[in-house]
Design a binder for these strands. Structure first.
Lengths: 169, 169
DNA sequence: ATTGATGCAAAGGCTTTGCATTGCT
DNA sequence: AGCAATGCAAAGCCTTTGCATCAAT
């Protein structure tokens, strides 16, 4: 019926940076009369050394595993700054805040598997257009959006349907 | 340049219920061997007596204002049940959970004004289609989605731009 | 000197849970 | 009796804040 298999979510390729994230952060801070201190530099670098989604706790744990130590308070304070600087974007898949890169990475949206919790990314050209048309039609000035498709990822969907048959044996 | 004014977000018309929400909840509970008790009935009725978005605290306050009293614990427990029963849908615009009707109301999405906090609803035919195409292309089985456009509502956008000019005086 | 950043610990806000009590069947 | 639902208070999470200390101009 359906073709045997389609490629599932090839990871998105990172874009080139115009500036290193660290520099972008420094500029942002400078404008506000604040400084790129050692803990802040450590955090930006660490966060930009990989592309995964993370929350505050995971970040703190990762840092410790890497032999670094920044206080909870500073981590939370810096995360807020990074969001304001448009280096990070907040995801609200659950009631805890998760973060992802918002710089040097193509704009994209998410599929959230409610069975295994996996988060997949995708890009779609039409969506932004649709968003802007909808907003305009309502006198709304769109600056961003979040689009999250919920359901089951291929693996969980496959694991579930056959199981029903086995259960009957 | 632009037409003097366009209708902004006419409220969505409620649909007809196939069943009263209360009945739908009762069935859901029956299947799980649980009961539609007095506090639960009170909650469903109250929640379905208006169409607004609310969070747990607002619900409790509203109930008290109406002379009813249900404990926090029961409110939280019942909200969870109502979500499982597909009578309510969770919105995660901030780090506290807000709820809206997921029954007897057309499926829709949201615009969130980050200036005044207003939440506007809209419907768009294309979106669901787009969602299903994207999901299919990634081997994902979509069961739902959340689409939130962020930016400024007409009122806030208008209030902001002219202010810049006034500031210069 | 002055201003901001950090870390610690404490407080806050939202949500869940343990447990005794109550209510139904 | 037996099983579930309630209410209360306490605990749990995640996050923010007050304050003393430290760093950098």
């Amino acid at each position: 019926m359906s073709p045997p298999s389609a490629a599932e979510s090839p990871p998105l390729a990172p874009l080139q940076f115009d500036q290193r994230p660290e520099e972008k952060f420094r500029e942002f801070l400078e404008i506000r009369g604040e400084k790129l201190t050692e803990p802040r530099r450590l955090l930006v670098r660490h966060i930009y050394s990989s592309h995964k989604h993370f929350d505050a706790d995971e970040l703190i744990a990762d840092l410790q595993a890497a032999g670094h130590r920044v206080s909870r308070a500073t981590v939370y304070r810096t995360l807020r700054l990074l969001v304001e600087a448009h280096l990070l974007r907040e995801l609200r898949l659950t009631n805890r805040t998760a973060y992802e890169h918002d710089y040097g990475y193509p704009s994209h949206d998410h599929m959230h598997c409610t069975t295994c919790g996996a988060v997949l990314e995708f890009t779609n050209e039409e969506l932004r257009n649709l968003r802007d048309r909808v907003a305009a039609a309502h006198g709304f000035r769109a600056t961003g959006h979040r689009f999250i498709i919920t359901g089951q990822c291929g693996t969980c969907a496959r694991a579930r349907s056959p199981r029903r048959r086995l259960d009957r044996i």
